[in-house]
């Protein structure tokens, strides 16, 4: 199949996708729309974490921390001064923030940029050392950000969080960003930078010997990952209409790590498929936490059961199906048509 054909196919499917988005946004019920929005945010988070963990072979556990930075930074910029005044009733918000209000899109960008800067500050020291330090340091970083957000009363409103945020996030915003994330990271991975990243994953020493600047490339991947995590956090804050500092905990990071591992370390397709699946599974599996009757036996609802199921799936996947659903394979038109032809034969 030639290039032009593929391009046409891609454009057509994108148009169909936008049409579907429009249909969903106009006619679907709010509950389904909310899950679709969450799915898009999971896609953004999964794909961006995959850039760090899957393509570069470093292991970050800081996504929740970067998300919370993005969520707070963007919310404090797009909230109206009046709304901020009502939110900060214990201690008023500090001066420049109390007056500023900028459009949602720019607020998101600033949120992402702040997450990226934090990513550089955290990542740079550990990436120089390499190895497992990044995992443990980012793990600590995410928890500490949470503690700091709880303590900075006059900037973040402390443990009260932010409430009554305007709902800007809709399917266009969330899926628009998701598509941009996929496009950007796919382009990056296929570029010379991407080849350098993959070479670092396969063998650091060999990559360095070939002239790859380890520190520069690792930091690049890490900062880009943090940026998109910040964007995802900003979208999530506006979708949920509240920001609770304690919701950005280690369980949230685990969910995203799970998306990456189940989808396959180093497969964008895998992260997209698992991001959407997990968003739906989270809702579908709600029943396991409600009381139920099996063969006349009544089991009271146990909260936390869903996460236990996910954790079990994760551990089993890691031990027995190390490559995840897609391994390092990606979706492509060739792949679809080839398998079709094979089926026809």
């Amino acid at each position: 199949m030639d290039r032009r054909m593929k391009l046409i196919l891609t454009i057509v499917s994108l148009l169909v996708f936008i049409l579907l988005l429009w249909l969903a946004e106009s006619y679907m019920d709010p509950f389904i729309k909310r899950i679709l929005n969450v799915a898009a945010i999971y896609v953004i988070l999964g794909v961006s974490l995959n850039l760090i963990n899957g393509f570069t072979g470093q292991f970050s556990l800081g996504h929740a921390g970067f998300m919370s930075l993005g969520a707070y930074a963007s919310a404090l910029l797009y909230m109206s001064p009046a709304l901020k005044a009502t939110n900060f009733f214990i201690e008023p918000i500090i001066w420049p923030l109390s007056e500023i209000q900028i459009p949602f899109f720019f607020a998101l960008l600033v949120g992402g940029a702040i997450a990226a800067v934090a990513g550089f500050a955290v990542g740079a020291p550990c990436l120089r050392v390499g190895g497992d330090y990044l995992a443990i340091v980012t793990y600590g970083f995410a928890e500490i950000i949470r503690v700091i957000l709880n303590n900075l009363q006059n900037i973040t409103n402390g443990p009260l969080g932010l409430k009554g945020l305007p709902t800007y996030t809709n399917l266009y915003w969330s899926w628009g960003w998701a598509l941009f994330t996929i496009f950007f990271i796919k382009k990056l991975v296929d570029s010379s930078y991407g080849r350098a990243l993959k070479s670092i994953r396969e063998d650091e020493v060999a990559a360095e010997a070939m002239g790859v600047n380890l520190f520069k490339h690792k930091t690049l991947a890490f900062v880009i990952g943090a940026f998109f995590a910040g964007i995802g956090g900003g979208l999530l804050g506006s979708l949920l209409m509240t920001i609770d500092p304690n919701s950005f905990n280690i369980s949230l990071t685990f969910q995203i790590v799970m998306i990456v591992l189940l989808g396959g370390l180093g497969s964008i397709t895998g992260s997209v498929v698992m991001g959407v699946s997990i968003a739906f599974l989270m809702e579908l599996l709600r029943f396991v936490e409600s009381p139920m009757t099996i063969f006349g036996l009544t089991i009271p609802g146990i909260s936390g059961m869903r996460m236990l199921i996910f954790a079990l799936i994760l551990v089993i996947t890691v031990i027995f199906f190390r490559r995840g659903l897609f391994g390092q394979k990606e979706f492509s038109w060739d792949w679809i048509f080839r398998s079709k032809r094979r089926n026809a034969e």
């Binding site: 995992a135 790590v257 996460m307 994760l314 551990v315």
Partner: peptide, 28 residues
């Protein structure tokens, strides 16, 4: 043990997974 000869990142994932699993078993 099953992952001892696997790439290091796999055993790191297993360790993170076990941490997640134990926390959730404890919660339930």
């Amino acid at each position: 043990r099953p992952l001892r000869d696997a790439p290091r990142i796999s055993s790191l994932c297993a360790a993170i997974g076990m941490s997640f699993l134990i926390q959730n078993i404890a919660t339930v």
